[in-house]
Amino acid sequence: MIWVAWRQHRGEFLGMAILLAGLGVLLLTHGVAMHDAFDRLGLRECQLVFLADTDQACIDAVMAFEADYAGLPQQFASWLPFLPMVAGMLIGAPLLAREFEQGTWQLAWTQGVTRTRWLATKLGVVFGVVLVASVVFAAGLSWWFEPVDIQRFSPATFNHAVLVFPAYVLLGVAIGVLAGVLFRRVLVAAAVTIPVYLALRLPIEFGLRPRYREPLTSDDPAVISHGWPIEDLTIGPGDGFPSVRYQPDDRFWQFQLIETAILLGITVLLLAIAWRLVLGRGAVRAGRLQARAPGRRPGARSAPAAAVRPRAARPRTAAGRRRD
């Protein structure tokens, strides 16, 4: 069964490999050059005082470095948050929807392998490969973005760290999988993945992330520069540096863990729903699509039914599964 799952999703895996290779090329060219320049100019020490102090030579060096190298990483950092969504559309949505769309679920479920094993292997293989690939991808990105980002909590650094980035990718794929189970059409599932992903990601990133822990308050620019000010800095004329609420840099991994836990929690929840739908009564609805009279559009009226029917079918199938 592992071979089957591997073979079925070979195209997606190939796509991931190409993406990783592309990133590798970027790192070897742009990334290596940038790191060399960063070390050569001795900017690591400079950056630490960049915000707080006014060492003009340092500021000039940092500005020059950013002008030379920061453009490309910043561009990537601005669209990479959509990559998990794309993964959901291209990997997650077809995972089960294509089986239902092309009728091959009937082939798969009548081989000498139980439905439970079939689904577990399929999800296991795909999510395993996606996890490994996204961790490697995130590690590369983190290394690449490191010199460009002054603050650890900047979106570029936080979003692409080795914990949060893979968690977003898994979430994106899980959204696609569940949408595929619910709508049973690859295109519909892929389209639905977009708003759902955004509706989950935006509130987490911009609403929850600054509040995982009670922020600290300080009016010392040197302290604040080692942290993430979570409200706008408005420096009025005259009365010195204002008091600012901020999250200190040493909370970085703690925040990573918290956000990852939230994302994985949602991922597991979505997959559990998909699991139940497929094993409990997935076939029932697939059968309905088939039994529908020709001429009526399949799926058009099946969505509301999804919310209503599971309970009736569940006890029997649950009992059936327990027996085997």
Binding site: T104, T110, R117
Partner: peptide, 19 residues
Amino acid sequence: GGSAQALAQVGYVAQDHPI
């Protein structure tokens, strides 16, 4: 459909022979 042994006993070709 309950067990692998039961499934192995039956060959099934669905409508429109999906493969």
